[in-house]
């Protein structure tokens, strides 16, 4: 896929009237960043890009107070990586998005860059230039230039991803690859499981104590779309609002359980966190449970209901019946 192909495809969709708006990524204001763009004219399509900096899961723009986007008469196109497409599938199966009204455009993903890892590579020095191809990344700053393999700096969620390309799409720019095997996808979760409960609790406490309760994790998440989130319930109030560890843990654990069988492990929460909290570990632990107990992998097909919304006669009930 070239950027030119991407732009031309979007342009023709718009000029042929197949869509009224395309949500995609444009160049960001800092090296190594991109920003969501809303393309409603062919001219604007020239601002589209797709590379390893396109880390936002754009499916979020169909949820919360924007869900009208996919319900009014507008025909919307959206660019998706593998994980983003799974979020769309989840929202479609949960009847939040009308499949007919969305034009899903797949783009080939090689993983998105975690800038915190890049900054770590250059000892925290400021990066003034960032370039990448599908295999390596080059960064420049005052008095340094460094090139390293893309795989060394992609997000943790991308390291274990076996569905890099869209699982559901109307058109794909380039060639979509078949999914890989999930077999070894949860190595770090298995490591975590080996710790005893006290150690696991300590580890979680250590991570979550940095939380500033900004809810960036929740707000970038396409699976988090309650009309009123439980943390915003104040009549009566459900949980304390201070960044005190008990309340903070309650927020994260409840959110985690609320997206059980609904989280597509895209890692948008983790990348959005201003405090660099490793949020995904707990999500992936739950995703692994859901896979092992119910044989369900979220958002992989329109015919599959989310695990918690489905019941199969022969499903594993050990945990109920003993």
């Amino acid at each position: 896929m070239t950027v030119k192909e991407l732009r031309e495809t979007v342009k023709s969709l718009l000029t042929e009237g197949k869509v009224d708006l395309v949500i995609g990524w444009g160049k960001g204001t800092m090296p190594g960043t991109s920003t969501p763009v809303f393309i409603d004219t062919a001219e604007k399509a020239d601002s589209l890009i797709f590379d390893s900096t396109c880390r936002n899961n754009l499916s979020v723009y169909f949820t919360k107070d924007r869900r009208a986007l996919a319900k009014d008469d507008k025909k919307i196109g959206v660019l998706v990586k593998g994980c983003d497409s799974r979020s769309l599938v989840l929202n479609i199966t949960e009847k939040q998005i009308d499949r007919e009204k969305v034009t899903i455009i797949g783009v080939p993903c090689n993983g998105v860059v975690d800038m915190k890892k890049v900054v770590g590579k250059v000892d925290g020095k400021e990066i003034l230039e960032f370039t990448d191809d599908s295999k390596k990344v080059t960064v420049k700053g005052r008095e340094f230039e460094l090139t390293f393999p893309l795989d060394e700096v992609i997000s943790d969620s991308c390291l274990t991803c076996v569905r890099r390309d869209a699982v559901e799409y109307d058109l794909f720019i380039g060639e979509a690859r078949e999914p890989g095997s999930d077999e070894n996808a949860y190595a770090e979760v298995e490591e975590f499981e080996k710790l005893d409960s006290e150690e696991r609790w300590e580890r979680m406490k250590q991570e979550y104590s940095a939380c500033i309760r900004c809810y960036a994790c929740r707000n970038v998440c396409p699976s988090c779309y309650c009309n009123v989130c439980f943390v915003d319930q104040n009549d009566p109030q459900w949980i304390g609002k201070s960044p005190e560890i008990t309340d903070t843990m309650i927020f994260h654990i409840i959110r985690n359980l609320h997206v059980a069988g609904r989280c597509v492990e895209c890692g948008a929460c983790e990348r959005a966190c201003p405090m660099d909290i490793k949020l995904l570990l707990l999500n992936r632990k739950v995703a692994k449970e859901v896979r092992d107990r119910f044989g369900s992998i979220t958002g992989t097909g329109l015919e599959n209901k989310p695990a918690m919304a489905d019941f199969k006669e022969d499903e594993n009930q050990d945990f109920i019946m003993g």
Partner: peptide, 11 residues
């Protein structure tokens, strides 16, 4: 494009 989190305000 704003997702309405409070990261900007809290930081």
């Amino acid at each position: 494009k704003c997702v309405n989190c409070g990261a900007c305000a809290f930081i």
